[in-house]
Simulated assay, not measured.
Amino acid sequence: MVDPHLLLPGEKLLWQGQPAPGLRFEAKDALLSLFGCFFFGFSLFWEYQAYNMGAPVSFQIFGLPFIAVGAYLVILRYFWEAYERGKTTYVLTDKRAIISIDGLRRRQNTVTLASVDELTFEEKSSDLGTIVFGRDVKTGSGKSQRTSYAPRFKFIPAAKRVYQLADGARIKSIEA
């Protein structure tokens, strides 16, 4: 059930839902996971060598944060993302798209549909998909290049129907 405080006066609820539960893998995960395997493997090798060579305790402890980062890159981030998806609610109204996450800290992202210049539908599997509200923006160049990702409803069931609702509401709000 949607929190009534999320809706503005006169705003009409069109759809609400949550992302599909469970572990999800995307194409973008492959490179980061591959790097994580090397990072994690080297960190374990470091610790093993430091322990077996009788290195000082401070030298052995030095590698522990790297093991933690490697474990996160290879495996733990998938569980963290699944946890966050379980705490995420998506709301589509006739004027806005709202992403609300009640994880360790409460976050909310609101997109006014009239300000969305591009609405994209990405089909993930038979019924699941992602709706992107706007464009991803890349800034900088070379090694300092960064990407600001547009807000999105990720891994939602019946995504094509929700996309059609969102696009219709976006067109009506632009014309108004």
Score class of each variant (00 low, 15 high):
residue 6 L to D: 05
residue 6 L to Y: 10
residue 7 L to F: 14
residue 7 L to K: 13
residue 8 L to Q: 14
residue 9 P to W: 00
residue 10 G to I: 11
residue 10 G to C: 13
residue 11 E to D: 10
residue 13 L to R: 10
residue 13 L to N: 13
residue 16 Q to M: 15
residue 17 G to N: 02
residue 17 G to A: 00
residue 18 Q to W: 10
residue 19 P to I: 03
residue 23 L to C: 12
residue 23 L to T: 08
residue 25 F to H: 03
residue 25 F to P: 01
residue 25 F to C: 05
residue 25 F to T: 06
residue 26 E to F: 09
residue 27 A to T: 06
residue 28 K to H: 15
residue 28 K to W: 15
residue 30 A to Q: 08
residue 31 L to C: 15
residue 33 S to A: 14
residue 35 F to D: 11
residue 36 G to R: 02
residue 36 G to A: 00
residue 37 C to Y: 06
residue 41 G to Y: 12
residue 42 F to I: 07
residue 44 L to K: 04
residue 44 L to W: 03
residue 44 L to P: 04
residue 44 L to H: 07
residue 47 E to D: 04
residue 47 E to K: 01
residue 50 A to K: 05
residue 52 N to G: 11
residue 53 M to T: 14
residue 53 M to H: 15
residue 55 A to K: 06
residue 55 A to R: 11
residue 57 V to Q: 10
residue 61 I to M: 09
residue 62 F to A: 03
residue 63 G to P: 02
residue 63 G to S: 05
residue 65 P to S: 01
residue 65 P to C: 04
residue 66 F to S: 01
residue 66 F to H: 00
residue 67 I to N: 02
residue 70 G to F: 00
residue 71 A to N: 06
residue 71 A to C: 07
residue 73 L to V: 04
residue 73 L to T: 02
residue 73 L to M: 07
residue 73 L to R: 05
residue 76 L to C: 11
residue 78 Y to G: 07
residue 78 Y to P: 01
residue 81 E to N: 09
residue 81 E to H: 05
residue 84 E to R: 11
residue 87 K to L: 07
residue 88 T to E: 05
residue 88 T to G: 04
residue 92 L to A: 04
residue 92 L to P: 06
residue 94 D to G: 06
residue 95 K to P: 00
residue 96 R to Y: 09
residue 96 R to W: 06
residue 100 S to P: 10
residue 102 D to C: 13
residue 104 L to V: 12
residue 106 R to P: 04
residue 106 R to V: 09
residue 107 R to F: 15
residue 108 Q to N: 12
residue 109 N to P: 04
residue 110 T to V: 13
residue 111 V to R: 10
residue 112 T to C: 07
residue 112 T to S: 12
residue 113 L to F: 05
residue 114 A to E: 13
residue 115 S to M: 13
residue 116 V to C: 03
residue 117 D to N: 14
residue 118 E to H: 15
residue 118 E to P: 10
residue 118 E to T: 14
residue 118 E to R: 11
residue 121 F to G: 08
residue 121 F to N: 01
residue 121 F to M: 09
residue 124 K to M: 12
residue 124 K to V: 11
residue 125 S to R: 12
residue 127 D to N: 07
residue 128 L to H: 03
residue 129 G to V: 10
residue 130 T to I: 15
residue 130 T to L: 13
residue 133 F to G: 03
residue 133 F to C: 02
residue 134 G to L: 03
residue 135 R to I: 10
residue 135 R to Y: 11
residue 135 R to T: 00
residue 137 V to D: 14
residue 140 G to R: 08
residue 141 S to M: 11
residue 142 G to W: 11
residue 142 G to P: 06
residue 145 Q to R: 13
residue 148 S to G: 08
residue 148 S to E: 07
residue 148 S to Y: 08
residue 149 Y to N: 05
residue 150 A to D: 03
residue 152 R to Y: 08
residue 152 R to M: 00
residue 152 R to T: 01
residue 156 I to P: 00
residue 157 P to F: 02
residue 158 A to M: 01
residue 162 V to C: 03
residue 163 Y to I: 09
residue 164 Q to C: 14
residue 165 L to V: 08
residue 165 L to H: 11
residue 166 A to M: 01
residue 167 D to T: 12
residue 168 G to I: 06
residue 169 A to V: 00
residue 169 A to Q: 01
residue 171 I to E: 02
residue 172 K to R: 15
residue 173 S to H: 07
residue 174 I to H: 10
residue 174 I to W: 14
residue 175 E to K: 15
residue 175 E to R: 15
residue 176 A to H: 11
